[in-house]
Design a protein around this nucleic acid. Structure first.
Lengths: 196, 196
DNA sequence: TGGTATACATACCGCGGGTATGTTGGGGCC
DNA sequence: GGCCCCAACATACCCGCGGTATGTATACCA
């Protein structure tokens, strides 16, 4: 076999990404063998390493795709929930979306668990900064403009909130007693409301 | 060389743990080679695998030791800060300690970054439950008793708070602008106080 | 004063990520 | 419409690294 059309090539790349995503999700990064991905995708190692220099680079691509999907959804929901009456509405919609994603197995294993370990401390934050965090930050910035939160507390607060939601997603998916999407949102909103 | 006295044996084990801890901290788990640990510790692979069945088991031992140290300090500080006047004092002291640890490189890399990845989703929580989380939970339980927080919000709130502090430690150590121990504690206390 | 289990050392294995080297056909170009 | 270069894969092989099988000397106990 040899060179195929451009559409075929793009399809191959997409297949690799999708297959890797599934295996990374169910087995984790280190337990997933390149040979496994290759087998399931119906290709060879040569093809995989043609598109991705290393296993880590493939992981990064999967990671970025997942994060991108989440980010897009969060932004969309935050925007469409905007209203004059309630400055919290947009912010809450974004957080809700994020919380929802953080409860997904694929997001947990790939983005939250293996992400930091594979991408490294600096690499993870570098990439994470433009995504999840900025979303939360924008929401709190809105609260600052409304005079609900003091401006000097914006950086620290956004960090606190972002990571609070992260962990909540974990706990939820783990099926921890009394930690459900509803109870988390309830507690979260309670804290927010007390800020008024 | 062969069998040494019990003290020697204990010392060897401690040396392995300490050496591994240093390398895991600076290079991460996957980048650290067993041969490296062995070399630095001045022993052989035979010795290492005599004490620890696998590299993962060695990591788990290092992980548990670190967590144990943190937990002991947090409990101690929380207890000694107890006072009748301020129900927050003890809770805050525990959180402060935890935040401090979450800002340490070794704690970050080993417990927060590599921990979940190596121990797995379930394993991590299983072990983490009896440590970091319980500390925070106890603090909030105290607030429940004081009537400051509604009981039904205890589980979700403790999850939120615990992870908020986790992430804050990360951001601090990363040298993020305007995210310092002081600013985080300020924002954290502001949220807590608004709960009253 | 043996005998046994412990505390290591040495030599080796096999898995798995990565690489070096093809091979074939698409498509731009004249 | 022939030509040729390079993309798009396939095949075979390498070697680092975690783990194991085996050896061996000595502390400790009977």
């Amino acid at each position: 076999m040899a060179r195929r059309s451009k559409e075929d090539a793009e399809k191959t790349r997409a297949t690799i990404l999708e297959t890797a995503r599934q295996l990374f999700e169910t087995q984790g990064f280190s337990e997933t063998r390149v040979s496994q991905i290759v087998e399931r995708a119906g290709i060879t190692k040569g093809a995989l390493f043609h598109y991705f220099k290393t296993k880590e680079e493939l992981f990064r691509a999967v990671w970025e795709k997942l994060q991108g999907e989440m980010d897009a959804e969060a932004r969309e929901n935050a925007i469409s929930a905007r209203s004059r009456d309630d400055p919290y509405a947009s912010f809450l919609a974004g957080c809700k979306t994020y919380l929802h994603w953080a409860a997904r197995r694929d997001y947990q294993q790939i983005v939250l668990i293996d992400g930091p370990s594979v991408l490294g401390l600096s690499g993870w934050y570098e990439a994470d900064d433009e995504l999840g965090r900025s979303n939360v930050k924008a929401g709190i910035e809105h609260l600052v403009n409304e005079g609900i939160v003091q401006e000097r507390r914006l950086p620290a607060l956004s960090v606190l909130v972002h990571n609070a939601l992260n962990g909540a997603g974990f706990a939820m998916a783990r099926g921890e007693p009394d930690v459900t999407e509803a109870s988390v949102l309830d507690a979260f909103e309670a804290v927010l409301k007390s800020l008024r």
